[in-house]
Design a protein around this nucleic acid. Structure first.
Lengths: 114, 114
DNA sequence: CCTTTATTTCGATTATCGCCGAAATATGGA
DNA sequence: TCCATATTTCGGCGATAATCGAAATAAAGG
């Protein structure tokens, strides 16, 4: 990932309103959440949320699909992981005590398989 | 990690000048880099960098220690990983195809041990 | 078509952020 | 103590970004 895209992603996540929305979407998985439903859960005006979803979308972190009258938003997990990898790049610098805690992240994500 | 601290961390990283500095520090490991040396490598005025380092520091992502006339900055890896974990919280939502790519992050960090 | 529901775009206001010159603080050495 | 080096703080200016009311666009149903 290049610097500009990483900055766009981090900027998109760097405001509470958008971070809250993103985290709800992360929980929702591939199914996603409709814009109106998100606005209701977050208790923010629909237009404000729409602007914020557009910013997350432009940063590549989420995507949208239309379903009837609603627009469903969902996380682009590939971009999300690319951003996290960008931050971790060359994190080790040769000393394992730095790297070790990072491995806990994977363990925290305890899926059934793999 | 609570929301406010996460937003502070993401905001601190959401600017190219600071993200560049942070990534250099991530590479440097525990040894850290002196403020002046960082300013030289990044080719930015010392006072501008100082302000940006203060923002990263206030967000808990880096710390500083004095060494003679210089001030050495280094990453607080614990806080860094806490921020990444915050973003990944409940990422799985039951489907492993979402979670699986996240595990690659840990594998990309291939230290000698663990 | 016309209405209702869902979402986005527009426009203007307000707040916040980044920058750098200049001055202040801190350390080490002659 | 005085000076040189290293870093931070202060000041204000210019740019960027967040918010929300109001209007515009899109889809479904009668």
């Amino acid at each position: 990932m290049e610097m500009k895209l990483a900055v766009a992603g981090l900027s998109a996540l760097a405001y509470e309103g958008r971070l809250r929305a993103f985290r709800l979407l992360v929980r929702a998985g591939s199914a996603g959440i409709a814009a109106g439903e998100l606005a209701r859960q977050l208790d923010v005006p629909a237009n404000t949320l729409s602007t914020n979803l557009a910013i997350l979308s432009h940063a590549g972190l989420i995507e949208s699909r239309r379903a009837g009258k609603s627009v469903i938003y969902s996380v682009r997990y590939g971009q999300m992981t690319a951003l996290l990898q960008f931050l971790m790049e060359d994190c080790c610098a040769g000393s394992s005590e730095i790297c070790a805690p990072l491995k806990e992240i994977a363990l925290a994500c305890d899926c059934a398989d793999s």
